[in-house]
Design a binder for these strands. Structure first.
Lengths: 200, 200
DNA sequence: AGCTCATCAGGTCAATCGTCCCGGACTCTT
DNA sequence: AAGAGTCCGGGACGATTGACCTGATGAGCT
């Protein structure tokens, strides 16, 4: 094995853990499986991380950042507001369809964190970051385009987070289906209606 | 220990398993913990169930039926349609707030089923039943009240299932907050708009 | 009462888990 | 070149898991 500083090893092990978890599930992600995936002996694992919990913590924060980056890149200003919302949803949905394992993993990790004593704050942080990201995106759009909000930003942001969460989870369970495009259209229209001027 | 037929023992063990899973999580629900919760010895467990998987299967189907019953009872026809929708959401939300563990468990079991080879069909069935229940409720309301649907029943049913799913999950993670009532109002208004006559 | 069989208790087993230890090997400083 | 600090490999330990096995127990029928 090539020698490398602990920091890089930690990153390598974290990514290996994410691969194993996404492929086989969190329960199957044992220290041995992760070390094997990283191509490293078991002792290296405990050399870089004080415990498995420390690695899981690293995994959760990394995954959360991944998700946020993905959502932020999905939403770019377009010509009209409805088009922006539609394109954002489509980009996000496309990512869900092409990387279902990754999204599944975020749900698994959320529940793992909720059950693990002392990890609840990671789950909360994950969802608070989601909400904050949506709020930030709305603010950003609010500056570049002119529209009024029929509901407070915080309410809209959380609603967006909840709807995308629910749709994603349902898709992951039920699989591909043409119904989803219709549902996304309905949601898009609703969101567009919520952010348009209430006086017509 | 009192003697009782296998069928009743199975029911007893299933309920004990649900209690353990809701309290400590699916991962902590070992055969020993479940047997102890039911107040029987470990051998009784394997006398009534061929394997732990058989019990989990029993747990999943039982929990799914519980959830469906709960949703069905939450929705009763009221004076106006919007009032019906609002009351239904409130009843459901009240159940979520008073029984968070039970709802958390359904999410855990869904993912457990998705990961366990040969159990995927149980997860799919669970979510198909949810969608079918909503569709059935919409049909039922459609007969007792007069309104037009702006979207197909299947789309509306799945949208309802996804939204409630997402909102519930977000609540379970983030905990109590006044924002939820505002979000529920927004969703209620949206749903009411979707089922009202499009010609005004 | 005697018999039969569903029911239960305790112990045991192999497998797997997270964790740890010890010794060797590498790298950098001096 | 010598030593100290850093990295890595293999092996081992105790705990826990699902599963199983052998006898005892007692209810219900004849």
């Amino acid at each position: 094995m090539a020698r490398m500083p602990s920091a890089e090893r930690r990153r390598q092990l974290t990514e290996a853990a994410i691969r194993v978890m996404a492929r086989d599930g969190v329960a199957k992600a044992t220290t041995r499986a992760i070390a094997a995936e990283a191509g490293v002996s078991l002792s290296v694992f405990h050399y870089c991380f004080d415990s498995k919990q420390a690695l899981v913590e690293s995994v959760i924060t990394t995954i959360t950042d991944h998700s946020v980056t993905m959502v932020k890149e999905a939403i770019r200003p377009r010509a009209t507001l409805e088009e922006t919302v539609r394109a954002g949803f489509q980009a996000y949905w496309n990512h869900v369809r092409t990387h279902p394992d990754e999204h599944m993993l975020t749900y698994e990790l959320t529940q793992y964190a909720l059950r693990q004593p002392g990890f609840e704050h990671l789950a909360r942080r994950q969802y608070e970051v989601y909400g904050a990201t949506y709020a930030e995106l709305i603010d950003q759009l609010h500056r570049s385009m002119d529209f009024r909000l029929r509901v407070p930003v915080s309410v809209l942001a959380r609603y967006l987070a909840a709807v995308t969460d629910g749709l994603t989870l349902n898709y992951l369970v039920l699989g591909d289906d043409e119904t989803w495009t219709d549902i996304l259209d309905t949601v898009t229209a609703h969101i567009a209606g919520l952010v348009q001027a209430d006086a017509h």
